[in-house]
Design a binder for these strands. Sequence first.
DNA 1: GAAGTCACG
DNA 2: ACGTACGTGACTTCA
Length: 491
Amino acid sequence: MAPPYFDTLVAHYLMDPETSHSLQVLGENILNYKAMDPEALIGSGRNKISWQQVSQDKLTLYAGEKADVILQLKQQLQLRDKLLDVYRDIELPLISVLTDMEYEGIRVDSKVLGDLSKELEAASEASQKAVFELAGEEFNIGSPKQLGEILFEKLTLVEKPKKTRTGQYATGEEILIKLADEHEIVQHILDFRVYQKLKSTYVDALPQLIDPRDGRIHSTFSQAVAATGRLSSNNPNLQNIPIRTEKGREIRKAFIPRDDKHVLLAADYSQIELRIAASFAKDQHMIEAFKEGRDIHATTASKVFGVTLEEVDANMRRKAKAVNFGLLYGQTAFGLSQALSVSRAEAKEIMEAYFQEFSAIKEYMDRVIAQAHETGYVETITGRRRYLRDINSRNYTLRSYAERNAINAPIQGSAADIIKVAMINIQQWLRQENLKSKMILQVHDELVFDVHQDELDHIEEPISKMMRDALPLDVPMVIDVGIGQNWLEAH
DNA sequence: GAAGTCACG
DNA sequence: ACGTACGTGACTTCA
């Protein structure tokens, strides 16, 4: 559909991203009008019928009512001030950008995945065999219930096993890693889980989603799902393709250019959230580190541990990195101690030293929380809002959760704003210049392009520049660009 | 459909 | 004493 158009979904998402945007609910809440229940037409459960089986008359009434509700909502959904700007200048133009990306899709080599599937099958079988032998019986390793009984009742790995909040034995990765020294079986279980996960979620699932007409996968990018303003990707989710582990990375080799005249180009923001935090807090120490292009985690370590940059060792850097990371989420000393496997006392010392050195960060965080308590919401760089309904709750758990959101949402959401602006500008430029290259994926701080080889030389700089300059910050933005014959190589 | 688990940023 | 790092989507099991 060509603009101008109004979009009730996107408009209401901006007004209040976490509540329902369905026409049914908006009709009730905003128009005080109860629209027809679709279940009255197609039923539910095992009696559910296809829309194609519904009579023309009933369909007409149903569709007509929807059109009516949409038009009436348009009059009521009045965005103002900054939110109107975000709607007009970002979310609305973004719709067609996402449409284009979904339409183009990304080519996937099913041969790569087929070979990987066989490898994972063999590896998984071997792990399963080892588990059964060490357990002394066969059972379903994929069932957390059965696995818990084997580990904690039959083999009695620990005296007091951790339980989940429903009373089952907890067998998550973190728990099992701590038990790896107790019994040889544990590592085989962890291996089995990895192989199964990669196989079922990616290697065997992706080929079924390749469109036979073009050999590509066309994901859906949802614009009105994430509470912070991020996009989400589904059917399939192309924003969580493995990269952290050796075996998982192999999957990225299956994501390839559309033909032999193209290559993949991946451009990602380096440390975008930390740069945003430094800029919002106007923390001169951190801003200076970014301006001078220093290793931010090493710089943090040198300040926190009171040593020179040269004296920072790998362990100090690792700890500082965890602090920088946790900072963006409102982490506590307890959380840091867990993440680093150090005592709470040490974690507390590290955090205190951190806030001593980066006092502006601390002041900023206190300011954001105070503002959230006063107004009931927080804002991103563009004025995008997230309401925090529990921010003044008397329930400590609920209130603390809201306070962590108050810290995280403006940062995560501003990163989302920045990359969205870049996407709009880049798409407009590609079109204006009549280029064959296509923007095909967004992964929160990364954009992936199917680039025609003839255009490679004059596309990299403009893309990088448009990402860098999307919105103004008090710190320089750095974009890392890679090019390759597959998504892994492009990193 | 809930719960548990785990893939990504 | 409590609970403890944010945001997503997909798969398997099980009632």
